[in-house]
Design a binder for these strands. Structure first.
Lengths: 112, 112
DNA sequence: GAGAAATGACCGCTAAAAACTTCATATGAT
DNA sequence: ATCATATGAAGTTTTTAGCGGTCATTTCTC
């Protein structure tokens, strides 16, 4: 019995965002004259995985992608205010909202 | 023989960035009064996976995280200029650099 | 307060990702 | 031009993330 591959759909934005991130990583790596092997070693991942990341493969673990990005100096969030501070602010906002959402009555609501 | 779990290290920034992203997603979800199940369904993922994403689990696939973020309206890159345009610009910059990096002489260089 | 729904946490299974390896080719420093 | 090495592209093995399920608890609506 052949198991069909699980079809996964991604929005155009998600796809493009990951591709862009991968290219920014590659660009930063080359500007800093770091080889794939070197960067992979520093990040503690396989070179093949780094190649997937730079290609914008959507299946890579977000932790690995962010780690590589961080190593080559790419910040995804404004470093202006510390991340921990932003996290706290998000927590505060969440605390103000109801802890459990109660509403959607099976409204799938395809928004278009 | 006990196999030790592969130790993976992440920088503070990566960890915090993913946690922040997860919280921003949860915040956006609650503001829009969408339940975990609903959002998971819309994204085509399991509720357990969404929970991991909102907790900032570093092992989640980047595509799933970005997809969920996109659904609740979070943009990681400036939507001012189109992403495709930014991708092209990155490509152009990369094209100007040497195709193969040549330099690092086994400098592991633990930077601290 | 009652009841329905949302959330939090856990677990086994399996498809799939990451690691590891190899090889060919392209590339750049000398 | 030489040659060490960076890159591209597989194939295989190992590890693991996502799924789907369960159950207890909390929370919101009425």
């Amino acid at each position: 019995m052949v198991l069909r591959k699980k079809e996964r759909t991604y929005s155009r934005y998600s796809t493009d965002a990951v591709i862009l991130l991968g290219k920014l990583i590659q660009l930063a790596r080359k500007e800093r004259k770091i080889s794939e092997s070197d960067l992979a070693d520093r990040a503690g991942i396989a070179r093949s995985t780094l190649q997937k990341i730079e290609k914008g493969d959507l299946t890579c673990e977000i932790g690995l992608v962010f780690e590589v990005a961080t190593i080559v100096g790419i910040k995804l969030f404004d470093a202006e205010s510390r991340l921990t501070m932003q996290i706290e602010r998000a927590d505060d906002k969440i605390a103000l909202l109801p802890k459990a959402v109660r509403k959607s009555r099976k409204r799938v609501d395809d928004d278009f």
